[in-house]
Design a protein around this nucleic acid. Structure first.
Length: 112
DNA sequence: TTTCTGACAACAA
DNA sequence: ATTGTTGCCAGAA
């Protein structure tokens, strides 16, 4: 396992920690793994992972609570259904009361 | 090594 | 307020 994939691994680990019924944003995740500003990379990581692991990628949305990744799920509104099934209200592909469901990840402390 | 790209975020018109 | 453009990071070609 090269160190390059470490980034992805951290993303997966953090996303898997998102509690059921809660959501998180790309930016917060990037920050949580010690790479603030790499929000786009988080999406890339999920894109590569959503097909293989049990990663709750549907709980990751953009800063505005918009289900920006729903288009990558099978079906037209699977992502929305998964979230609603967990008690997250969604309106027009956006999470209602984002703050209410937002889960802030613990800050990742890298061993040095 | 250089260049392109991406499920974002912030800023400018 | 809405739309468009730029900056960001790290991985893949």
């Amino acid at each position: 396992m090269s160190s390059s994939q470490h980034f992805f691994k951290k993303v997966y680990a953090l996303v898997c920690q998102i509690p059921e019924g809660r959501v998180c944003t790309y930016g917060l995740i990037a920050k949580g793994i010690g790479s603030e500003g790499a929000a786009r990379m988080v999406g890339w990581a999920l894109n590569a992972a959503h097909l293989e692991a049990d990663i709750p990628a549907h709980r990751v949305v953009n800063r505005g609570g918009l289900l920006s990744g729903k288009h990558h799920f099978p079906g037209e509104n699977l992502m929305q259904q998964l979230l609603e099934n967990e008690g997250v209200e969604i309106r027009e592909n956006k999470i209602v009361h984002l703050e209410k469901h937002l889960w802030i990840p613990p800050v990742f402390i890298e061993p040095k």
